[in-house]
């Protein structure tokens, strides 16, 4: 895919490129539908119940039915809401979540933009979503929504820092911000960054959960305190957009983790005959499962404890990791 970007723009490659983007959107939407389905199934199994099994065979069309329900619902905008902001907020939240996939290399050939600062692009764009969250919470003129949005802003901005710092070690070892280079470095080293950069991996996983707002850091939704946080006033397809954002981010974050720490598309145990895209899907699936697993197990952390963990534990640890990586690199490589 990437090679089309390097050619001069013509109708042919422009259409191919646009078509590929639509195809990716289709894949992502498919993923979201079945991620929600599997989340419910996994939660069901972990909680000794069956989970959705009514709509379609094994309940496979449950989410499809849910999405149709959301799309057909009446579009409610609260009277005292800030109309313009209320309408634009779900879009502000969703666009960056899909945009980050532009730089994601699924295999060495299956990717869109192969830009030098791919990782930087991802981190920069993904932090834009917080604007959508704050706008949504503020515009809906609801106190719970406002508290949820404030928490969301504090949480996402605080955890951006350890997230970025934790990958600096990888950047140092690779010497590049390009995601394909990072995977190739892991292939040439013969070891995943998950092991070579173990502290960074742990910090990244924790910060990633906080960025995603998933359990145990699901404070911005916190249904037992804030009912559902920033999107409490949203319903119908606007709510669906927020929901979509959340799961597209899971897709994106799990992909990024796979690329950065789990060797991307490179095969395991020398099983080269299995295509890279399958390996990628398997590793990503494992991360997604891990996120759902935590959702079933963990209580929710409190906002001040979350801040303390971020600023007092994760950031110093990430800095220490950078320091040690730098020393090792200058001394031995």
């Amino acid at each position: 895919m990437g090679q089309y970007l390097e050619q001069p723009l013509s109708w042919t490659n422009g259409l191919i490129f646009a078509g590929a983007a639509v195809a990716l959107l289709g894949i992502v939407l498919f993923f979201v539908m079945y991620a929600i389905f599997f989340q419910r199934k996994i939660l069901g199994w972990m909680q000794l119940r069956i989970g959705p099994n009514r709509v379609g065979p094994w309940g496979l069309f449950q989410t499809v039915a849910d999405v149709f329900k959301l799309l057909l619902k009446e579009d409610i905008i609260p009277k005292k809401a800030d109309k313009a902001l209320f309408i634009i907020a779900p879009v502000l939240a969703f666009v960056p979540s899909f945009l980050v996939l532009a730089v994601m290399p699924f295999t060495e050939n299956w990717h869109f933009a192969d830009i030098g600062g791919g990782l930087l692009f991802y981190l920069a764009i993904s932090s834009l979503t917080v604007i959508g969250v704050i706008t949504g919470g503020w515009a809906s003129n609801n106190k719970y929504g406002l508290i949820g949005a404030m928490r969301g802003a504090a949480q996402m901005i605080s955890y951006e820092i350890p997230l970025v710092l934790s990958v600096v070690g990888i950047i140092l070892m690779t010497g590049s911000l390009n995601l394909i280079d990072i995977v190739e470095k892991q292939q040439s080293m013969g070891v995943w960054f998950a092991f070579a950069q173990l502290p960074a991996f742990i910090i990244f996983i924790i910060a990633q959960l906080a960025e995603l707002g998933r359990s145990p850091f699901d404070l911005l939704e916190a249904e037992s305190e804030l009912i559902s946080g920033y999107h409490v006033e949203y319903s119908g397809f606007r709510f669906a957009f927020f929901m979509l954002t959340e799961y597209v981010y899971i897709f994106a974050m799990a992909s990024l983790t796979t690329v950065l720490f789990l060797g991307g598309w490179s095969p395991m145990f020398g099983l080269d005959f299995i295509p890279g895209i399958i390996w990628f899907a398997l590793k990503m699936g494992a991360i997604v499962f891990f996120i759902f697993w935590l959702h079933a197990t963990m209580p929710r952390i409190r906002i001040d404890q979350l801040m303390k963990l971020g600023w007092k534990v994760l950031i110093p640890l990430a800095l220490l990791n950078i320091f040690i990586t730098a020393i090792v690199k200058t001394a031995f490589m």
Partner: peptide
């Protein structure tokens, strides 16, 4: 109580 704290599963285990 665990549901209030944010953990989902204990609720279902206890009720079962």
């Amino acid at each position: 109580y665990l549901l209030d704290i944010g953990a989902l599963s204990p609720f279902l285990f206890a009720f079962k």
